[in-house]
Nucleic acid binder design. Sequence first.
DNA 1: TATAAGTGTGAATCATGATTCACTTTATAG
DNA 2: CTATAAAGTGAATCATGATTCACACTTATA
Lengths: 212, 212
Amino acid sequence: MAYRPTEKTKARRAAQHEHLLRTALAIVAKEGFQGLTISAVAQEANVATGTLYKYFDSKAALCTEVFKLATEKEVNKVQQAAFPAPTSQPLPCRQRLINAITTFAQRAIQARKLAYALIAEPVDPMVDTQRLVYRQAYADIYSELIAEGIKAKEFPMQSPAVSSAALVGVIAETLIAPLGRDQQPPLDMEGEQKLINDIKQFCLRAVTGLPT
Amino acid sequence: MAYRPTEKTKARRAAQHEHLLRTALAIVAKEGFQGLTISAVAQEANVATGTLYKYFDSKAALCTEVFKLATEKEVNKVQQAAFPAPTSQPLPCRQRLINAITTFAQRAIQARKLAYALIAEPVDPMVDTQRLVYRQAYADIYSELIAEGIKAKEFPMQSPAVSSAALVGVIAETLIAPLGRDQQPPLDMEGEQKLINDIKQFCLRAVTGLPT
DNA sequence: TATAAGTGTGAATCATGATTCACTTTATAG
DNA sequence: CTATAAAGTGAATCATGATTCACACTTATA
């Protein structure tokens, strides 16, 4: 009689799903969540608006998936910086903290609009919930690193939960918020290095309790 | 011939303006900017929607005024904590920093919904611009205090602009963001003190570069 | 009291953008 | 080729909430 989904059609469906998702991500990276409308995605992806709804239950669902996609990659990079594959010569926590912050900062500056969208851009509450998860993912990395540093006596006693959230706040406010809001001219290379360095020093003092 | 505004009518107009503004503020304090709609304000204030437009050019203008009203009071309190009226025995910068942070934290916990609305709630871009001003007002206080502390050799060399923004970020992320998003049960008195203390320690280490 | 200007009204209108759905097209199995 | 299920279409519909405006009511001068 009839029709039955096959490997080929399943693959096509998955490919389309990915295509739409990446199109949406590109829009967010260029214009922020403000520019992420169903019709914009449809237009950019050369499909009709209705098609989007064959792949995503709602705009909220789409936003969530976009958020996840963007998040995973970024968080992974920072995770690797904080917890590198073990080598013969293990790095001290202090150095790994520096690496994590620098990695985050540099990637954020590279894709400032995206970083702003993920961290700070005002978005509707549905997406904001997802953002909480995202920030927590970062905080968890720092939290683990700080706990390790305390145990190793590298860092003084402190609440890893509070300190890690604080670090996320520092970075969000110093680095990302000013970048994204308006069209402030981008910093030159030199100013950028100085900014990252100032942030790094602040975070180090805060976590280590030592003058830098 | 004709009509001319008089003292009495001007006063009435000013009173009405204030009444509407305070009504709007009350809504924000209770429900956040999410609940701030023209019709909600009208209803609460017992006027028609059209009346709002006799007093405010647009919703954006109303939001801006609400923001300012709420802001000024809060910023003033912190300002006073950071720069108290000079006494015979001037306080060290370190202590004034502690006072400023504590003041902010306690007021935020008192009126958590309002604090969340002002600092972190996702709002439309028009209001977000105003928020930038608000955060900057806080940052300016810290910035001046830090600069003074550096000059007095209480604090090590650092960028006051970066450190002050970082402090705002710390407070926003650790204190306010977790409070406002969902309906997390409020902390008990003890947990609250511990949280404030952890934040205080973090900030002190960051600014002074000394173990606490 | 007559006239001009200001204030208040709230239903109607707009604007934006998500969501639906009747219909067309495409892919698969017999 | 034919029947069936899925994918794609896009104009029409909904939902939300800001904004307008023709009209009624008040207040201040002459």
